[in-house]
Design a protein around this nucleic acid. Structure first.
Length: 494
RNA sequence: GGCGCGGUACCCAAGUGGUAAGGGAGAGGUCUGCAAAACCUUUAUACGUGGGUUCGAUUCCCACCCGCGCCUCCA
């Protein structure tokens, strides 16, 4: 079997084959930086990241470009309201977005910024105009002429054939030839930000940036284009129209769309009060690893119901996996190997691979690792695991980690920096006690903890339990949990 | 109205034409100075409702009910 993905363009699950043998060129629509990224954004970005990571794991060279939209109507409006330049307005959110991608362990793509490509966009539009696909209106805006592009609608499966030029005229857009024609370039209204270009003053329409930047970085035809499901129409449909009108070649071959999530069973919206940015959740004391785990646990084409209960469950699940990893690395096993265990590890790797090859079925991949963990834990208890079994089991865990990226415990420093941000951004009132407690567990260095734990062990061996309990309590207060297992003592941060 | 997706145990959530993965939670037990971790057992006569096809359907078809998405900005 090989990787099979649902392709929005064909409406079917297809085998994914890159245009060039070993290289995958993919482009993803990133964030419009007029605000902080919310969990819906990150559900999509994590789905794309899982794809990226799995392609790498499958042996491909991956060239993954993600755009940052740093000019659009909302940005223009908000920045002019705040009376600050566009660039200054977006810089803050752009920085936050880049930090957030690191917070949830997104394998870094090549980021490209819309405002760095304005001149290329103008050139692109000029070429479209010379080929008759674009026209200029009286105010200096440019529109794409849909009637010239017969395939319009092929991605979103819409039929525009019945639409004649001028058949329906939108009163607000009286300058357009056809109501469906979309903006390539917008002339500035008084006071609005603009760029000077050979096609005049103005700013790009929403869709043009992705056509320009993807073709510039990946070529006229590339393998895969990704985004949230809402982008299918009009954004991606329009990108196809512009791009293929210009080049006459197929644009992206695969179209990958992640489904919207629900929050507590309802559509996320500010008015319902269930709208959360990534930072909101961390401030409430939720670990980035829990968030990532929950967001990746439901296959990307299924609706995911994001709940706080689910977030707690995710935290426990991650904990279970981390505990197993610790147990495996800490315990002393006898010499030799047990064939059934080695076999189990190999089967698990295979199960994960098959699951992910099946349109990235993350739920099944997770089920596979949990099956292994349960069986291996039981085997450890029964003394059936020996030294040479550890490496294959760890290898399976590593394969899992390469995709899901939740086992490595670096939550505390990440949460700490978000805590610092909150203080500097005037969000003190949103800092929860849970967050403070977790961050506090990072206060003691590992050396300090090791020292205390050794002291505690000494007291325990001397059966001085009042002293050992006192140390245990002291460490617990500092957010350190000490565990005495059959295999010896170990500790972890809360 | 057009196009599309889904309704599976207490919760989250896979999946299959032959009678239901996984996680969480609950209950009981083992281990343990305490705590934690771990393990074992247990928790869906059954997959929205009603029909149909079939030897057999949760899985296919039809209708209905409910939820969700796109059709204007939105991951």
């Amino acid at each position: 079997m090989a990787l099979h993905l649902y392709n929005t363009l064909s409406g079917k699950i297809e085998e994914f084959r890159p245009l060039e043998d070993n290289e995958v060129r993919m482009y993803a629509c990133g964030l419009t930086v007029y605000d902080y990224g919310h969990i819906g954004n990150f559900r999509t970005f994590i789905a794309i990241d899982v794809l990226h990571r799995f392609l790498v794991q499958s042996g491909y060279q991956v060239r993954h470009v993600m755009n940052i939209t740093d000019v659009d109507d909302k940005i223009i409006r908000n920045s002019s309201r705040a009376a600050i330049p566009v660039k200054e307005y977006t810089a803050k959110f752009e920085r936050a977005f880049l930090e957030d991608t690191i917070t949830v362990n997104i394998e870094q793509p090549i980021f490209v910024r819309a405002t760095d490509h304005i001149q290329e966009m103008a050139k692109f539009i000029a070429e479209l105009e010379s080929k008759g696909f674009a026209y200029r209106t009286e105010d200096g805006s440019y529109y794409f002429r849909i009637a010239k592009f017969p395939n319009y609608g092929k991605l979103s499966k819409r039929d525009f054939a019945g639409m004649e030029d001028g058949a329906r005229v939108d009163v607000d857009e009286y300058e357009k030839d056809n109501a469906r024609d979309f903006a390539l370039w917008k002339s500035p209204k008084p006071g609005e930000a603009f760029w000077d270009t050979p096609i005049g003053r103005g700013r790009p329409g929403w869709h043009i940036e992705c056509s320009v930047m993807s073709m510039e970085t990946l070529g006229e035809s590339f393998d895969l284009h990704a985004g949230g499901e809402d982008l299918i129409f009009p954004h991606h449909e329009n990108e196809i129209a512009q791009s293929e009108a210009l080049t006459g070649k197929p644009f992206a071959h695969f179209w990958f769309h992640a489904r919207f999530l629900l929050v507590e069973g309802e559509k996320m919206s500010k008015s319902l009060g269930n709208f959360f940015t990534l930072r909101d959740l961390v401030l409430k004391g939720h670990k980035p690893s829990s968030i990532r785990y929950l967001l990746s646990s439901v296959p990307y084409r299924n609706q995911l119901n994001f709940t706080f209960d689910g977030l707690k469950q995710a935290a426990t699940s991650v904990e279970r996996l981390r505990n197993f990893w610790l147990r495996l690395t800490a315990a002393n096993f006898s010499e030799g190997a047990t064939a059934t265990i080695v076999q189990l590890a190999l089967e698990t790797v295979q199960r994960m691979k098959s699951a992910l090859e099946d349109d990235l079925n993350t739920a099944q991949a997770q089920a596979a690792i949990f099956d292994m963990v349960r069986k291996a834990n039981a085997a450890i208890d029964n003394g059936e695991i020996r030294k040479d079994d550890v490496a294959p089991l760890l290898a399976a865990m590593d394969k899992f980690e390469e995709i899901f990226a939740v086992l490595k415990d670096d939550d505390v420093p990440k949460m700490k920096s978000i805590l610092e941000w909150a203080k500097s951004a005037g969000r003190e009132q949103d800092i929860s006690n849970e967050l403070l407690e977790i961050v506090q567990s990072g206060a003691l260095s590992s050396e300090q903890v090791n020292h205390k734990v050794a002291e505690m062990e000494q007291a325990r061996r001397a059966r001085n339990f009042s002293k050992s309990d006192a140390i245990r309590a002291e460490l617990a207060a500092a957010g350190i949990i000490v565990e005495n297992t059959k295999d010896g003592v170990r500790w972890k941060r809360k």
